[in-house]
Design a protein around this nucleic acid. Structure first.
Lengths: 225, 225
DNA sequence: CCCGACACCTGAGCA
DNA sequence: CTGCTCAGGTGTCGG
C-alpha cells in the first residue's frame, strides 16, 4: 500500500509521452521514422544523431548502488524533468534508449532531492551487467536529430581498462575454479545465457574496496604500502 | 528554484509541530517564550526543564555511522513516534533540541526496523563534530516543563575522558608546542569555557581521517608513516 | 530471505 | 569561507 504505484505509474508514464524522451514506450511504434531509417542492425550509423554527452563511469555507477549519476549540467540541459506543473516530475520519468544493437533500454530517470542530483536508477544495473560495464568505461548519450528525438545509449571500454589485471585475487572462500566468477556483482567469465544465478557467492562484499582501488583518483594512502 | 523543496519537508515538519519540539526552525523565531526566558547565555538553568534521560555515547554514536542510538526504553517513553494514523511515522520526524548556548539542533528521529532501534540520524554528525563529542561522553535530553514542551540537549565530557592520551603524536607539521593544539578537529588542551563556538572546525578536513584513526578498528594504513 | 529499486544522507573536493 | 556537486553510502520496502 505504501508503494502502490509500482507499475501503474510506469504505464501512465509511457502513455503520457510528450517531449521527454519520445512518445513510444516499446519501440517500433511507427512514428519515429527517422530513427528506424537507420537500418535496424548494429551498425554505428551516427549521421542522424547528435551526441549529448559522455560520462566516464565511476565505481559507484557500476557497483551495487544500481544507479548512474548524471552530471547536473548535462541532466538539466538534455533530460529536463519538467518540475513545473507536471505532478509526475518528482517521481521521475522513464526514458528509452536504444543501443547500437537496436535493443531498447528503459531507465528510470529521476532527481534526488537529498543529494540534489539526477540519476538513472531502475534498469541501469541490467545495462551494466549486460554490457559488462566497468569503472572507467565511458557511456555516451545521443539524441536523434529527427523530430522524434529518439535517445540512444552507447558505451565503450576505457582504453587500457584492464578487465582483470591482477585483480582476480581470490578474496573470499573460493572453492574451486568455476565457470562463473561473481566479482564486483558482475558475472565475469559467465556462460552466455546464465544470467542471474551465480554460484552462490555469499561471502559479504569486500569486493568493492578492491574494485575502488583501481579507479580511485585520490591516491588516498596508496604508496604507503 | 532547483532546491526549492529542500527544506519544504522540514518546514512542514516543524509546523506540524504541536508538542514535539517547537515551532521555530531557524532559532530566535520568538514564539518559544518559555524557552527564551531561560536567559540566553550558556548558563545551565535547569529549573524549568526536566531531564528525560542521559546516554553515555558509544564509539559508534560518535563515529562514521552518523547516528545516535536511543535506548528503546527512553525512546518509547519520551519520544514516541506515533505509528498510528500519522503517516509520517515511517519516515521519522524532525525534532528540535536547544543546547545550552541557545543553538537549535534539528535531528531526524526514526525507528529502524532492521535493528529495531530508535535513532537520531540527520543532523547528529554535526552535533558530534561541533561539540567534539567523544565516546564515553554523556548526552542529556531535557524537556521544558512549560506547555511548549521544548526539547533540550546537553552534553558533557566524561570524567577522565582522556582527551589525548598518547595521542599527541606529532603526525603533521607540528610547528611548536602551543596552548591550543588543534588535532582531530578537536581543540585539545583547550581553555575552559570555549564551548560550542571555540575554534569550531575551520581548518579544512583531513583532520577527520586522523580522528577516525583513533577509533577505527581496521588498521587501514596505520604505521605506514 | 536475498536482492533490486528507491529515497534518503554526508563529506571531499572544488570553484 | 561558502556553496555546490557528486561519489559513496544508508535503511526500507516489495518481489
Amino acid at each position: 500500500m505504501l508503494r502502490k504505484h509500482t507499475y501503474e505509474e510506469e504505464l501512465r508514464q509511457s502513455k503520457r509521452g510528450g517531449a521527454c524522451g519520445g512518445k513510444r514506450h516499446r519501440r517500433g511504434n511507427g512514428d519515429n521514422i527517422d530513427a528506424s531509417s537507420f537500418g535496424s542492425e548494429g551498425a554505428c550509423d551516427l549521421r542522424a544523431r547528435e551526441q549529448l554527452f559522455e560520462k566516464t563511469v565511476t565505481p559507484s555507477d557500476v557497483g551495487k548502488l544500481n544507479r548512474l549519476v548524471i552530471p547536473k549540467q548535462h541532466a538539466e540541459k538534455h533530460f529536463p524533468i519538467q518540475g513545473n506543473g507536471c505532478a509526475a516530475a518528482a517521481k521521475g520519468v522513464l526514458l528509452n534508449f536504444e543501443d547500437v544493437g537496436g535493443k531498447v533500454w528503459r531507465f528510470r530517470y529521476s532527481y534526488w532531492n537529498s543529494s540534489q542530483s539526477y540519476v538513472l536508477t531502475k534498469g541501469w544495473s541490467r545495462f551494466v551487467k549486460e554490457k559488462s560495464l566497468r569503472a572507467g568505461d565511458a557511456v555516451r548519450f545521443y539524441r536523434s536529430a529527427g523530430p522524434d528525438g529518439q535517445l540512444y545509449i552507447d558505451c565503450k571500454a576505457r582504453m587500457n581498462n584492464k578487465r582483470n589485471n591482477g585483480l582476480l585475487i581470490p578474496v573470499g572462500p573460493v572453492v574451486e575454479p568455476v565457470q562463473i566468477v561473481r566479482l564486483f556483482g558482475v558475472n565475469l567469465l559467465k556462460l552466455p545465457g546464465s544470467d542471474g544465478v551465480g554460484g552462490g557467492c555469499n561471502g559479504k562484499r569486500k569486493e568493492m574496496e578492491l574494485f575502488a582501488l583501481e579507479c580511485s583518483k585520490k591516491p588516498k594512502i596508496i604508496g604507503a604500502l
